[in-house]
């Protein structure tokens, strides 16, 4: 087991390296001229050229990547002399439009995204799995049909639609909640919850629909398995049969999907963060695209892609916890 974990972590690091290279090369191929973009309002050919050298853009892509990697490990200094800008390790780049290191910007935005993702994750996972089990146990009856119908609606509605409808009715029309204004929970817990509750619920509805359907089909499959009959033959109460035997056996694909969805949410729910003006990674990415601010885009892409890779590792390790056949193989 330990060997397996070490092997997987090493593979993960290799994957991250490859990923960073790909992202770096991709963005360097963009037609945008970073030296021009970062030059400001009064722009002469000389300042552009000076910028180009200061940013290291006169070098080849491979060299630039190498300098970028060095920056991640050891930090990096842009320019020379008194005007030089120091970016401490781990340096993911420097945004000249915002005059801040990229990592600092990302870390500032991470809490909002993290709280959004965690809250929604807990809600949609518990809600989706519970509804899925309920639906499976009442298969074919009106309760099942109702749940499946609602989940189909939730599954097919786009987030910008639900988001806007909810904002319009609950905040603007009925004024049940104040306009969203994000604060960290330790500053003002009430305002935090008031801001987050709608995006949490909207995300939960959107995602729960999928988990309801997945859980239902998993349960219908495992409930027909022979070991469920064995569990009943032992005289176990039905709720134990369902929770400990049927649900546990059908958990594997649910865990996979949940892990990847959580990683995806950490990348920022771009549309919802924008609708509810949450200062998260998603809205950072949107504004970086609009500026455009390439160092931030590279940084956000790298960080969110890393979340997916790490989530994959966690999911694979969870497999081994859930299924002993994976552990011993």
């Amino acid at each position: 087991m330990a060997g397996y974990v070490i092997r997987r972590v090493l593979i993960m690091l290799l994957l991250l390296l490859l990923l960073s290279f790909t992202v770096f090369v991709l963005f360097s191929l963009l037609p945008a001229d970073v030296a021009r973009l970062t030059c400001g309002k009064i722009c002469t050919p000389e300042t552009i050229e000076a910028n180009r050298i200061r940013l290291g853009l006169d070098k080849s892509v491979i060299e630039q990547y190498w300098i970028f990697l060095q920056g991640v490990v050891m930090g990096r200094t842009y320019g020379q002399g008194p005007g030089a800008i120091v970016c401490n390790a781990p340096c993911l780049g420097y945004s000249f439009t915002r005059q801040e290191p990229v990592l600092k910007l990302i870390l500032e935005r991470l809490p909002a995204t993290l709280f959004l993702a965690m809250g929604a994750f807990v809600l949609f996972l518990i809600g989706g799995v519970a509804l899925g089990v309920y639906s499976a146990l009442r298969r074919g009856r009106w309760q099942d049909k109702t749940v499946m119908g609602i989940s189909l609606v939730g599954y097919s509605l786009p987030s910008f639609f639900i988001g806007l409808v909810v904002v319009y009715f609950i905040i603007i029309r009925w004024q049940l909640l104040p306009f969203p204004s994000y604060v960290n929970p330790w500053v003002d817990p009430l305002q935090f919850v008031q801001t987050m509750i709608l995006p949490w619920l909207v995300l939960a509805v959107l995602y729960a629909a999928f988990y309801t359907r997945l859980t239902r089909s998993q349960m219908l499959e495992t409930l027909n398995d022979d070991y469920i009959r064995t569990a009943r033959a032992k005289g176990l109460p039905e709720r134990v049969v369902i929770r400990k035997h049927a649900l546990r056996a059908g958990l594997t694909p649910i865990v996979t999907a949940a892990g990847l969805d959580f990683a995806g949410l950490l990348g920022g729910a771009i549309i919802l963060e924008t609708i509810f003006s949450l200062p998260g990674l998603g809205s950072l990415a949107v504004s970086a695209v609009l500026s455009p601010d390439l160092p931030i885009l590279v940084g956000v892409t790298l960080v969110t892609a890393s979340f997916v890779i790490v989530a994959n590792l966690v999911v694979d390790l969870l497999y081994a916890v859930i299924d002993p056949r994976v552990r011993l193989a």
Partner: peptide, 17 residues
Amino acid sequence: EAMAMIFQDPMSSLHPF
């Protein structure tokens, strides 16, 4: 407790986890 049952396929009648 008072009555018990054995099934046909032992490969699938025990919970694999």
